[in-house]
Design a binder for these strands. Structure first.
Length: 420
RNA sequence: GUGGACGUAGCUCAGUUGGUUAGAGCGCCGGGUUGUGGCCCCGGAGGUCGGGGGUUCGAAUCCCCUCGUUCACCCCA
């Protein structure tokens, strides 16, 4: 056991897992591009204030989960806990609106939250996310939501469900929350200790309580659905209609709340089976007030973010393995005593042709080199020995077919191409 | 932040009521083929038994503390 270990909640991603993640990222990014989204990369560090303002001063993320620190110049910086606020900040700072609305962008990268790790929860995790800024058309909400569905379909995933809800706007939500709060205060006797506490801090959360008595008490609670203003109602109904026509199956879950303050109207989540307690792989929604909160002009926006480690777990849970690792195409094995020059020359020529090639660097015997070739999944081995060199030939072995031939070094590349 | 479970080779794990040089399988290195993989056979390397303290003639094994991992709560991707 070595002295240094990866910090709690972080881990090394080692091959072949690292390659699965790489392929997953490639697949997801390609799908975003197919839908007209362009790539954006924002810094991992941002002003602490950016997150406090956007996510909400009282949220768990801001009050206890952020990695923030004072840098040597005295500024308070934070390692991003999520991707939306930085994107919106960049949208404003870079004047992306002038590139034409809506601005549709996607990002991939690490996010950081200082929580206790558990199944599907890490302190550093990878998200892919997309944001569509500039339109309040519910069709755009539907497009954002349908991305996940399309990605899951491409990966072969099936055991998931989509939950959607409307959390209202800046007018109707506070009114609803007040009404809910007074209901909860009146029914205090029928609630557990935690729910009584939540009545003050985050009343919407009481709907998550598993306690039987609370559930019974909450039967008569006012729902957000009954309290949406006409505008929000219309937006939500239109969204549901669009999801229908897109052929997506979903459940309206009026108890679903998102953990970030900036959401308005649409909120949605994709949950999977078999992932443990952390079963949400993708979450998102609309954030029509966020740009103003950050000092910009009123601009609507919708987005999603997806946890890629969780997505990998979902694949595992469904027994899917869509990413076969790439094989090495050629391994060059030189018999002991053979000069380096002809080996390096051939290696260079193969690589220049775009053929993946590797060779021995351990000074091993031929047998051990063959073993290495096998371990690397090489398709063919080119053996170079004194004899071959003398006659201007090499031995070409097809490891899959277990056949080999003496071939002239001249047409070797062409010959290898035939096998591959 | 709270609670439970668990820490023995790179990995997965054995280790009998505390007893002498701590084991297996896989992996790794080498040999069986002085120029040939995957199967098989043989050999080898590799372990402060998470760390510290205590009990004992003797601790991987019992006790305490500590660190770590893991699962759950809170909350979330």
């Amino acid at each position: 056991m070595t002295r240094y270990k990866a910090p709690r909640g972080t881990s090394d991603l080692v091959f072949p897992d690292s390659e699965k993640m790489e392929r997953l990222i490639e697949t997801a990014c390609a799908l975003m591009r197919e839908r007209g989204y362009r790539r954006i990369d924002t810094p991992i560090l941002e002003d602490t204030e950016l997150f406090a303002r956007s996510i909400g001063e009282e949220t768990d993320i801001v009050t206890k989960e952020m990695y923030n620190f004072e840098d040597r110049g005295g500024e308070s910086l934070t390692m991003r806990p999520e991707g939306t606020a930085p994107v919106v900040r960049a949208y404003l700072e870079r004047g992306l609106a002038s590139r034409g609305l809506p601005v549709k962008v996607y990002y991939v990268g690490p996010m950081f939250r200082r929580e206790r790790p558990q199944a599907g929860r890490f302190r550093q995790f990878t998200q892919i996310g997309g944001e569509a800024i500039g339109s309040e058309d519910p069709f755009l909400d539907a497009e954002i939501i349908s991305f996940s569905d399309a990605l899951f379909a491409r990966l072969g995933l099936e055991r998931y469900r989509l939950l959607v809800n409307s959390v209202g706007c800046r007018e109707c939500r506070p009114a609803y929350v007040d009404r809910l709060r007074s209901f909860l205060e009146a029914m205090k006797g029928g609630l557990c200790e935690q729910c009584v506490r939540r009545t003050d801090t985050n009343p919407l959360r009481v709907f998550d309580c598993k306690n039987e008595r609370c559930r019974a008490t909450l039967k008569g609670a006012p729902t957000i659905g009954e309290h949406l203003c006409p505008r929000c109602r219309e937006h939500f109904d239109a969204l549901l209609g669009h999801l229908d026509t897109m052929g997506m199956t979903f459940e309206v879950d009026e108890r679903m709340v998102r953990g970030l303050d900036y959401y308005t109207n649409t909120a949605f989540e994709f949950q999977f089976e078999g992932l443990g307690a952390q079963n949400t792989v993708c979450g998102g929604g609309r954030y029509d007030g966020l740009t103003e909160e950050l000092g910009g002009p009123p601009t609507p926006g919708v987005g999603y973010s997806m946890g890629l480690e969780r997505l990998l777990m979902a694949l595992e849970a469904e027994g899917l393995d869509p990413f076969v690792p790439e094989r090495l195409q050629v391994f060059l094995a030189a018999a002991p005593g053979v000069q380096r020059e002809p080996v390096l020359d051939l290696l260079g020529r193969l690589r220049a042709e775009g053929i993946s090639a590797d060779t021995d660097f351990m000074g091993r015997g031929l047998k051990a080199q063959m073993k290495q070739a096998d371990r690397l999944g090489a398709r063919v081995v080119v053996m170079i020995g004194e004899e071959e060199l003398a006659s201007g030939e090499v031995t070409l072995r097809d490891l899959d077919a277990s056949e080999q031939w003496r071939v002239p070094a001249k047409g070797l590349v062409e010959r290898i191409r035939q096998i591959l």
